[in-house]
């Protein structure tokens, strides 16, 4: 069995990528299973999705703790403890990272001993689709690394995207982008397979129950209470950003529109009355740039620099 784990940010398409791979494998005659991990998070927040591919029926359930292939759709997740995309990666695993950096740079920076492949699929997505939606592209990379055929990938992308997109030309572009990524990466050997779990139930085991008595606690200790106010800035949502707003103070008229339109309250005024944003928390929604009446704010592609 091949176990593939996708890590992305909500809205990038990690869930659909896992479906594209699962459907492509299914259409090629394999048994396949795919599912996302839902948490109490949303667009921009770390998301994981999983695909299992096997010649035998897949009886294993639950999240994949020991993947053979890991697809990291957003490089900033590598330093995000909530996401931990490298957890459970063993010798011989294949780790794909969407980055502008080379594989040697990434291996050294994050001390990865497994096989590393890098490609800037965000750029490919912006070039072909015009939007940073990576589902078909990450699915394309995963299909190549899983050893599936190009034709199965195209059909998988078509089947999955036509369930959510009505515009035929957008579906075609997604297939084009997926195939482009499929051919842009080389196939890599898979690590030695781990035994499949869930197929055998040891006799007489696993049915023993131990009752744990939880002592009564008053509400003040048993319910979660937050005693420090105004602490969310520590979460640093700035790494959600794909584009950063940059102000041109030559053009800025200090009209306050950007300050008034920022949903996150990240924009403040400097000593001279010019607006600036808190890049540690700015999510890059770019409402400020859209709303600026004199177009003094431009969007610059965020490239993760070390």
């Amino acid at each position: 069995m091949l176990r593939v784990r996708f890590h992305g940010r909500g809205g990038q398409g990690a869930k659909v990528a896992s479906r594209v791979l699962g459907t492509a494998a299914f259409l090629e005659g394999y048994y396949a299973q795919d599912f996302p991990l839902y948490g109490a998070e949303r667009r921009g927040a770390p998301i994981a999705a999983f695909t299992r591919i096997s010649k035998e029926p897949v009886l294993e359930r639950g999240v994949i703790a020991e993947p053979d292939i890991v697809i990291v759709m957003d490089e900033t997740l590598l330093s995000d403890p909530l996401s931990s995309p490298l957890a459970g990666v063993r010798e011989g695993c294949v780790v794909f990272i969407n980055t502008t950096h080379s594989r040697e740079e990434v291996r050294a920076k994050y001390k990865i001993t497994a096989q590393v492949i890098t490609l800037d699929i965000t750029k490919i997505s912006l070039d072909i689709l015009g939007r940073p939606v990576l589902s078909a592209l990450a699915g394309g990379v995963a299909a190549r690394l899983s050893g599936l055929k190009e034709d199965s990938l195209s059909k998988g992308v078509e089947k999955e995207t036509s369930e959510i997109i009505t515009d035929r030309s957008v579906i075609e572009k997604n297939i084009e982008a997926a195939v482009h990524c499929y051919n842009a990466v080389e196939s890599h050997p898979h690590p030695a397979p781990l035994p499949s779990r869930g197929t055998e139930v040891p006799e007489g085991e696993g049915r023993k129950t131990t009752v744990i008595t939880v002592p009564f606690e008053p509400a003040i200790t048993s319910s979660p209470a937050i005693n420090t106010t105004g602490s969310t800035p520590m979460r640093k949502t700035g790494n959600w950003r794909l584009f950063r707003p940059v102000w041109d103070y030559e053009k800025c008229t200090k009209c306050m529109t950007c300050v008034a339109r920022c949903p996150d309250g990240c924009i403040a005024l400097n000593e001279d009355g010019f607006p600036y944003t808190d890049y540690e928390n700015c999510k890059g929604c770019m409402i400020c740039a859209e709303e600026c009446p004199v177009k003094a704010i431009t969007a610059e592609r965020e490239v993760h620099s070390w």
């Binding site: 800035p233 996150d264 929604c285």
Partner: peptide, 13 residues
């Protein structure tokens, strides 16, 4: 304050 888990561009926020 910033740093919430709301989506980028949340009108409600």
């Amino acid at each position: 304050l910033p740093g919430t888990a709301m989506c980028a561009g949340c009108g409600g926020l």
